[in-house]
Structure formats: structure tokens, C-alpha cells
Amino acid sequence: MRTAKRPLQSQASEAQKQAALRYILDAWEEALHDGIEPEMLANAALFAALADLIDLYGEDAVAKMTTGLSRRIHHGEFTLRRTAQ
């Protein structure tokens, strides 16, 4: 297992975070327009994100960070669009 290369903390400003999200969402929309299925995009995005995080912070730090994802998902932290129920 690899060790952490730096602390698992965001060093980016809020503006950089928003800009990064906009780039990803724009690319996502372009891929959808080109006929890529949302599930394929999601799997590729998760793989790429986790691979980059592991490269930056190490497997242990990323494993620790991902243990709290279920709680964060259930609290709506990752919900960009709310659907009518």
C-alpha cells in the first residue's frame, strides 16, 4: 500500500472548486450529447477521480475518506438536481 503524499485537505479556493465542477459538468453534457450513456460516464468519472486521489494522497487516506460517502450521499451532498417525487 502507498502512503499519503500530502494531507487529504482541499488547498483550492472555492472559485477553483466551482470552476473545476463547471469543466466536469460541461464535459459531461458534451459526452451525453455524443451518445455516451450516463452510467458509463459515472463509472469513468469515479474511476478517474479515485485514481487521481490515490496518486495524490495514497490508498489509506482515500479509503478513509470514502468510508463516509454513504452518510454524505444520504444527506444530499452530491445531489445536483432534485427530481419530483
Rank of each mutant, 00 (worst) to 15 (best):
R82F: 02
Q85L: 09
A84H: 04
G35M: 04
L69P: 03
T67N: 04
I24T: 07
T67S: 07
I36Y: 13
S10E: 05
K64M: 13
Q11E: 04
K5R: 09
Q18V: 03
P7Q: 06
F78M: 01
A61G: 14
E30N: 13
L69M: 06
A19D: 12
S70W: 03
A20T: 04
P38M: 14
S13I: 01
T67E: 10
R6M: 04
G76M: 00
A48Q: 11
N43P: 10
G58D: 07
M40F: 11
T3M: 09
T66I: 02
A51P: 13
A20D: 11
G68Y: 05
D26H: 12
L53E: 06
K5V: 01
E29T: 10
D26L: 13
G58T: 05
R71L: 09
L50Q: 13
K64I: 07
L41K: 12
T66P: 01
R6D: 02
K17N: 08
D26R: 13
Q11R: 01
F78N: 02
R22I: 02
K64W: 08
A45F: 12
L8S: 01
Y23V: 07
A19H: 05
D55N: 08
E59R: 04
N43K: 15
R81P: 00
R81D: 04
E30T: 13
Q16L: 05
A48D: 13
L41S: 10
D52S: 12
K64H: 14
A42V: 13
A49T: 11
I24Q: 03
R72Q: 13
Q11G: 02
Q16M: 08
M40K: 14
R2C: 03
H74C: 01
E30S: 12
A12H: 05
Q18M: 04
Q18F: 00
L25E: 07
H74K: 04
L32C: 14
W28T: 05
R22N: 07
G76L: 00
R81Q: 08
T66N: 07
L46S: 13
S13P: 03
K5Y: 03
M65I: 00
T66F: 05
D52P: 02
M1R: 05
R6H: 04
D60M: 09
E29R: 15
F47K: 15
L80N: 11
S10I: 03
R6W: 02
R82N: 07
I24P: 00
A51Q: 15
R71E: 14
Q9N: 06
E59G: 08
L56C: 06
A20Q: 11
L8E: 01
L41Q: 15
Q16W: 01
P7W: 01
E77K: 06
D26N: 15
A51C: 14
Y23A: 07
F47I: 14
R71Y: 10
L50F: 08
P38E: 15
E39F: 09
